[in-house]
């Protein structure tokens, strides 16, 4: 009897294939893995600011998953829209940057050169800028630092 044993010890796959109820509008999931998401994270933050804040305020109001489905769909649609635009305008830079992140432990500091190319491309095409909130205003932000002490050491 499979239910009596611990799920970790079981060879059976536990999966719930039931589709969502029909009254919930369908939305595509983002479908991107962690490295592309980390690559565009700051642009998602800039491009989808209203939707993200709306969603988080809604979650703060009530943590029930059913409560913020509408706001959540907007968040996902916005992120998909941004990814599509990035793919359209800066495909090669984006590809190079997220693959570099993927190879280098997903640390930004190993991919600064590619990141600058990607950022400037996104800035020219979509007018989105990478801003790190809370960083000291009297110094250039870390992604624009000329001679970082923690040097760029890309794996390959």
């Amino acid at each position: 009897m499979a239910a009596a044993e611990h799920p970790v010890l079981s060879n059976v796959t536990f999966i719930d294939p039931t589709p969502p109820p029909d009254d919930v509008p369908k939305v595509d999931e983002i479908g991107a893995t962690s490295a592309p998401l980390k690559s565009v994270a700051f642009f998602i933050g800039a491009y989808c600011k209203e939707y993200n804040e709306d969603f988080m305020l809604c979650k703060n109001e009530n943590n029930d998953p059913a409560h913020c489905l509408k706001e959540g769909r907007k968040v996902t649609r916005c992120a998909i829209d941004l990814l599509r635009k990035v793919r359209e305008h800066c495909d090669s830079e984006f590809e190079a940057h997220w693959q570099c992140l993927d190879r280098n432990n997903q640390e930004y500091r190993h991919c600064r050169g590619l990141e600058r190319k990607f950022n400037s491309c996104v800035f020219n095409a979509l007018n989105l800028e990478k801003v790190i909130p809370g960083s000291p205003s009297n110094k250039p932000p870390i992604h624009l630092k000329e001679k970082p002490l923690y040097k760029e050491r890309p794996r390959w």
């Binding site: 983002i30 994270a41 998602i44 939707y51 969603f55 988080m56 996902t76 992120a79």
Partner: peptide, 8 residues
Amino acid sequence: HLIPLLTA
């Protein structure tokens, strides 16, 4: 910046 997306 990714939290809303992943939470949703």
